[in-house]
């Protein structure tokens, strides 16, 4: 939350200087509705999107992924157990890959729980969702979280600093969320929306419109590039004493 506020503050001057921000204030109630995506509040998907997916589920999964991603390599290095681990006949690349697989498995498991929870218990509360749409939303959520976790893993692989890895990944994911959310309100930001992986993962309202393969592919590709960077950077470094 500290990072959230920080990023908000950091963005304030740019927002302030923007003429459309004045309009935003005039249109406050409507803008708020858009920011938190409460346009379809009365329908099942609309309610769920607002309450769960527009914030809570991605937030929790991303936090989990960032904590894990920063801890798996950088945490092990800070706790100095990496010396014993790498005394074994395993390459550093393999270590990074296996750490990432552990991260992906964790995120995957959480996502399955989320999907089952909403898909099975939802109807009890008169939330009738298509499995396909729900899966699309959960996959988007999982990929966005995995992106945050992989970024933290890569930063940790590069620097060995766990705290910094967390900070960077948190700042980037929050900034992407804000960019995507504000782009609904500030037309000037609209042309930059593509830079937000949140937009690619969850921006197309998958809970009503289903899978958007191209957009999901973009997120997956960024994850792949980060993982590649993590292996290369970790392979090159002196491990801290």
């Amino acid at each position: 939350m500290a990072f959230f506020s920080l990023v908000m503050l950091a963005m304030f001057p740019t927002i302030h200087a923007n003429a459309s921000f004045a309009k935003l204030i005039e249109a406050y109630p409507e803008a708020l509705r858009k920011l938190f995506d409460i346009s379809n509040y009365t329908t099942g998907p609309g309610y769920l999107r607002t309450e769960v997916f527009s914030f809570m589920a991605p937030l929790l999964i991303t936090i989990y992924a960032i904590l894990q991603g920063s801890d798996l390599l950088a945490g092990e290095e800070e706790r100095r157990t990496i010396d014993l681990l790498l005394a074994n006949p395993v390459s550093r690349r393999r270590v990074v890959m296996e750490k990432w697989l552990a991260l992906a498995t964790g995120v995957g498991a959480l996502s399955v729980v989320l999907e089952l929870l909403l898909g099975l218990i939802g109807p009890l509360f008169r939330l009738h969702l298509g499995w396909r749409q729900l899966s699309a939303e959960v996959l988007g959520t999982a990929l966005f979280g995995l992106f945050g976790g992989t970024l933290a893993l890569a930063w940790g692989a590069w620097t060995g600093a766990r705290g910094a890895a967390r900070g960077v990944a948190a700042a980037v994911t929050v900034a992407m969320y804000l960019l995507s959310a504000l782009a609904q309100l500030v037309s000037a930001l609209g042309s930059f929306e593509w830079a937000s992986l949140w937009y690619h993962a969850l921006g197309g309202d998958p809970l009503t419109t289903g899978f958007h393969y191209w957009h999901l592919g973009v997120v997956a590709m960024v994850i792949g590039v980060l993982l590649l960077a993590a292996t290369l950077l970790f392979d090159r470094r002196d491990l801290t004493t």
């Binding site: 706790r79 100095r80 157990t81 010396d83 790498l86 005394a87 395993v90």
Partner: peptide
């Protein structure tokens, strides 16, 4: 490393 056994000086 397949042929080496290592005890770190600052064991963790």
């Amino acid at each position: 490393r397949r042929r080496v056994g290592y005890l770190p000086g600052e064991l963790a």
